[in-house]
């Protein structure tokens, strides 16, 4: 394409096309930028801030910031790795993440990111919030303890499923994902084949009766660090 342009990520020259975000252009070049709230096919949220990069010396979310000709982007630097680590640690202490019995363990993007970033334990005190579980739907449950407020389910239900089953309610530290019915998830139009059911990066929205199907050792991130598939593809 004639209107492609070049810019650099950590000194490596990559090609971008108009309309691409930095994260998308990086992916196309086989460069992985850590992320949680971003998911291909959904509008970017810019919420988790894990994909933060430095663009011309300013911190920006790579998932939402447009790629542009000549940009100088820093991604995998000591400073940014350390900042990302702290944001992931914040997510761990903010919720109640009991990996030892979570159905999503081994396939969880939050956990996998912490592994890849080498987090043995968050440096912050655990907040132990009181959160709710909604099991009113016959096929799907929401465990608020594990929710990281990334909003993927909200965007998937609204923009892909065309239903708007989910939405943020409350604010500040109490912000949580609410559902579109006064009677809970069971009162919404959510069905098992909704995209929104499968986009949760953690174990907050799960299908009922299918937990622990894959043995430990064979799960997605048991041996392969998150992002390495993309990096291998790009190499």
């Amino acid at each position: 394409m004639s209107d492609t342009f070049r810019f650099t990520i950590d000194g490596v020259e990559v090609t971008g096309t108009p309309g691409q975000t930095i994260l998308q252009a990086a992916e196309a070049a086989g460069i992985w930028i850590p992320r949680l709230c971003y998911l291909e096919g959904l509008v970017p949220g810019g919420a988790c801030r894990v994909c933060t990069v430095k663009v011309q010396g300013r911190f920006q979310a790579a998932c939402a910031f447009p790629a542009g000709p000549g940009l100088v982007v820093e991604n995998d630097t000591e400073e940014i790795r350390e900042l990302r680590k702290q944001v992931v640690e914040m997510l761990f202490v903010e919720g109640n993440h009991f990996c030892m019995f979570c159905e999503k363990s081994g396939n969880c993007e939050l956990q996998a990111l912490a592994y890849r970033l080498g987090i043995a334990s968050p440096r912050y005190p655990y907040l132990f919030p009181v959160r709710q579980v909604d099991a009113s739907h016959p096929d799907v449950f929401i465990d608020g303890n594990r929710c990281i407020q990334c909003g993927r389910c909200i965007r998937a239900s609204r923009d892909v499923d065309g239903k708007g089953v989910f939405g943020f309610v409350e604010r500040s530290r109490d912000t949580r994902v609410g559902v579109d019915a006064r009677t809970g998830l069971g009162g919404t139009s959510l069905t098992l084949d909704d995209r929104a059911v499968t986009v949760c990066p953690v174990g907050a929205i799960l299908k009922k009766r299918v937990g622990f199907a894959v043995p430990i050792g064979e799960r997605l991130y048991d041996h392969r660090p998150i992002g390495t598939d993309l990096e291998r593809r790009g190499a």
Binding site: A47, R49, M90, V93, Q149, E170, R171
Partner: peptide, 10 residues
């Protein structure tokens, strides 16, 4: 805090 992004919310 509006609660949207992690660093500000937490």
């Amino acid at each position: 805090s509006c609660g949207w992004c992690t660093p500000c919310r937490v």
